[in-house]
Design a protein around this nucleic acid. Structure first.
Lengths: 103, 103
DNA sequence: TTATATATATCGGACATCCAATATGATGTG
DNA sequence: CACATCATATTGGATGTCCGATATATATAA
């Protein structure tokens, strides 16, 4: 049914770009999981569930894109050098693909 | 494994935004399927297969987002008024979600 | 200690996306 | 007509994305 959601008026649910968004958000400022989820909520309009955000962070970590610092119960994530390079490449692709859409 | 693809350097495969992209492309100029596929190839770097583009067009058509004009073997698609409204809403969401990424 | 709240983590599965293969129909050329 | 070509269409399935439910760990309060 493609990306069209809800009562016929909306499309574009950003599916598949969660990891990209997280990299971008972390490039602005290191954050822990809940802060990232809140930032995503601001952008997407809906807060991702724990079952979304933590596996996503794990994937990015497994790819070597994140640095982390544990303190008590919170883990603050940032971009590793590899993560920064990946973000730059992804931004180029994103920009080329969606050129002209954001006016 | 999220949206991360290929040798660790890339992410952001635009999954889930195909319908949105098609609406945007058609808002610039009415086109038929193959022209749309070629335009997508320019943006994404890879031409979508027939099994991708035609079901996508069918979904958009079923949602009432497209107008079409058949001439011989080609069908030229454009945006219906409903499609234009949907695109505007989607662009707002897209812009809010990815604000700051395209510099 | 017990209770509560918060952060992180995992697992199962529903659902969506997209492609490969294939089929249909129209047009043109010999 | 037979054949090739191009645009369109369908369908089966592999894969990916994300959420709900649940569990664990740490911190704080009574």
């Amino acid at each position: 049914m493609m990306c069209m959601r809800e009562h016929g008026g909306e499309c574009c649910d950003m599916r598949g770009l969660l990891g990209f968004l997280i990299l971008f958000i972390l490039s602005k400022k290191p954050m822990h999981g809940q802060e990232i989820a809140n930032e995503l909520a601001k952008r997407r309009g809906e807060k991702p569930s724990p079952g979304t955000i933590y596996p996503a962070l794990k994937s990015l970590k497994d790819l070597g894109f994140l640095s982390e610092e544990k303190e008590g119960k919170t883990i603050t994530y940032g971009l590793s050098p590899k993560g920064e390079r990946a973000l730059e490449i992804a931004k180029k692709r994103f920009t080329r693909t969606f050129l002209g859409i954001i006016t």
